[in-house]
Write a protein that binds this DNA or RNA. Sequence first.
DNA 1: CGCGTTTTTGAAGCCCCTCAAGTGTAGTGG
DNA 2: CCACTACACTTGAGGGGCTTCAAAAACGCG
Lengths: 240, 240
Amino acid sequence: MSAHAPLSPEDVGLLIAACQNQRVFPARTDLIREGDRPGPGFVIMQGWACRYKLLPEGTRQITAFLMPGDTCDLHASVSDAMEHSIATLTAARIALVPRGILQNLLETRPAITRAYQWNQMVNEDTLRAWIVSMGRRNSVQRVAHLMCELYVRARNVRMTEGDRFELPLTQTVIGDALGLTPIHVNRVLRKLRISGVMTLDQGALVITDISNLAAVAGFDDNYLHGRIALASPGRRAMGR
Amino acid sequence: MSAHAPLSPEDVGLLIAACQNQRVFPARTDLIREGDRPGPGFVIMQGWACRYKLLPEGTRQITAFLMPGDTCDLHASVSDAMEHSIATLTAARIALVPRGILQNLLETRPAITRAYQWNQMVNEDTLRAWIVSMGRRNSVQRVAHLMCELYVRARNVRMTEGDRFELPLTQTVIGDALGLTPIHVNRVLRKLRISGVMTLDQGALVITDISNLAAVAGFDDNYLHGRIALASPGRRAMGR
DNA sequence: CGCGTTTTTGAAGCCCCTCAAGTGTAGTGG
DNA sequence: CCACTACACTTGAGGGGCTTCAAAAACGCG
């Protein structure tokens, strides 16, 4: 959250204190299911998770990827039933934040409130960007755009090493996020690999031509307010 | 907003006061464009508007429809450039809420804060539902689902008369929202008309078989927390 | 009445899906 | 050490949903 707004050491301390209660979940475990009463808020400390929704025909649509540093449903629950489910994708260490604790911080700590609102806004922008992808981009652009997004987010939380980062998503999972079949995702990944743009292999993404990847994706430089380093790939070029 | 949480007459008065500055915009007018500094907050008083994003190829993706009672960007601006544009679809009367006024209300009026958080949550759920539609529903289901959503929302603000309401969206606009060509939207609408489910004509939607429409759409009864009246169409059956 | 926009219909093609099968890899238990 | 299973990845062939291109009819508005 400190990437979103300057937080005093005291604020950071309070947030860390709120995340004391942590648990480790195995891969593919539902943290909460659609229809459940909302439980505690979650903060991903380690590993990957996602929000998803199951359709009557049995298909799945993922609506968000959650990586370390991401929060979900921290704000006091307003409805009495979850609209979607949340599950781990990998083994994950997750903090359970009791309802009310954040509410309390939001009422007493203006800086945390600001950072949290920022966080909310960025999440909304991400949802809208996904809609744009699903509506107006073909499969190659869609995959490329998702990878750009995940790369920028991973970099924001210092999970990248140069143009590489751990991305343990199966092709089925990517398909469930982009509205594609795993078979087609496979062909798209091959296309991107052959054209020398990026390689997703062994649970790691290697971006071999970042400016080309961003170009293919039609990736908005300002998206998530973390710029892709286009001009000089080596330089650290993060947005505020 | 009072549909979201109980507001005292005083709170309602404060909100009405915040919406004093109103302007009428012609159809197809940008209220704010992508890249602009965020301006005042908007509250739609009359008419229809949308959020949209233009792609490099010139295509457009609408990410939300805004109808009377809807608000946008009321919360204090956190970023310095709009991620998307907002435009009227019809002539519209819109309240311009100065930045800071709502911020002030949120800090002093707990009930308004609650209603606003509710509002935010519902908006997010809507965005996620759109992603699900775009990813996992075919064109007929997509159109049907959108119409269900708009029907429930219109009913929430008392804009329906029985199973009919004014819906001045062109087929191009519907296509831009659902990621379809206007030509295909036309064929889908014909299909729905012939099968006796609904008719969109003359800027008005008539739902002839609501339970069938909801079934085709795979419409979640709990979506937007305003139930579709399935069992007895005449009954008033709104969520809390 | 005339013009621009919207709606409607037809024909052809492509993108992505479905069905099918084979390969590679990790984990399990004999 | 090797069967055996489960799962992810890979590749091929055929089909269908939606797009593109094209053009006519209907509508709305000055």
